[in-house]
């Protein structure tokens, strides 16, 4: 075995020392071409670009790129839809919020929890020879409501749906508060209509005059009712569940 190996080495050394011949030149030429090709290929492989790829690979790359582009496009579309949905959602929310704020204001004025301002009348009842009965004041109240008074205040008390009147010592009890004469009734509404309603023949003003009271009615283009009705939560009543279609 070692014999053969030694022969191999000897042959190699001998080949390296061989004299130049035509056959050797051809082999050298081929090897030169090989070295050249190897270096060229290594060089081009290191600088891989699309230009080096064959057609099938290019088609694959193009496919991948277009698939990725389509995926990104669909993602962009869904994101834009989400953005539009969120935007319109917040718009609707703001509209709902504004609407409920308006409702809160309206209901607050109706329920007497918010101060109100607007045109109206001021009725002052004074100079009594005999005490004004609460029924007369109640008549005046009903007359004002019929005439479309939106907010009414008697003395320092805001008149709401549950307001009650009672004769008291030295005055009239309104919602538990003793109001002493002179009574001042403020009402917001159309001043002309309110004044007419109170001043009709046989109406509130006439009755008051007959009873010896001195009633002064004044129309105001701007008056403010600042008395508030304390809000108490209903003890028994609850909002009934509304069906989906109900407003």
């Amino acid at each position: 075995m070692s014999d053969i190996d030694d022969q191999g080495r000897i042959r190699l050394v001998r080949a390296l020392r061989a004299r130049p011949s035509r056959a050797q030149s051809v082999v050298g030429l081929l090897l030169a071409a090989l070295g050249f090709a190897v270096v060229t290929q290594v060089h081009s492989a290191q600088s891989t670009g699309l230009g080096e790829l064959r057609q099938a690979d290019l088609v694959r790359v193009l496919d991948g790129v277009s698939a990725r582009s389509a995926r990104l496009q669909s993602e962009l579309k869904s994101l834009e839809q989400t953005r539009a949905r969120l935007g319109s959602g917040s718009g609707q929310q703001q509209a709902a919020l504004a609407e409920s704020r308006a409702r809160v204001r309206t209901l607050g004025i109706l329920a007497g929890t918010l101060p109100a301002t607007g045109p109206g009348i001021q009725l002052q009842i004074s100079g009594l020879s005999s005490p004004v009965r609460s029924t007369v004041l109640l008549d005046a109240l009903e007359e004002l409501r019929d005439a479309g008074a939106e907010v009414i205040q008697i003395g320092p008390v805001r008149v709401v749906a549950s307001t009650w009147l009672r004769d008291g010592d030295g005055g009239i009890v309104v919602d538990g508060t003793l109001v002493a004469p002179p009574y001042v009734v403020l009402a917001i509404g159309d001043p002309q209509t309110l004044a007419t309603a109170l001043g009709i023949p046989g109406g509130v003003l006439d009755v008051l005059t007959q009873q010896g009271a001195h009633a002064v009615l004044a129309q105001r283009s701007e008056l403010t009712i600042s008395a508030l009705h304390p809000l108490s939560a209903p003890q028994y009543a609850r909002p009934a569940p509304t069906s989906a279609g109900a407003p």
Partner: peptide
Amino acid sequence: MIAALGLVVGIVLGLLLEPTVPVWMAPYL
């Protein structure tokens, strides 16, 4: 000897010239 020399010469030539592979030859080289 000449063979080894040829290989070295080819490599050196390739390094010096830095040729680009022609497109038609790219798959075969």
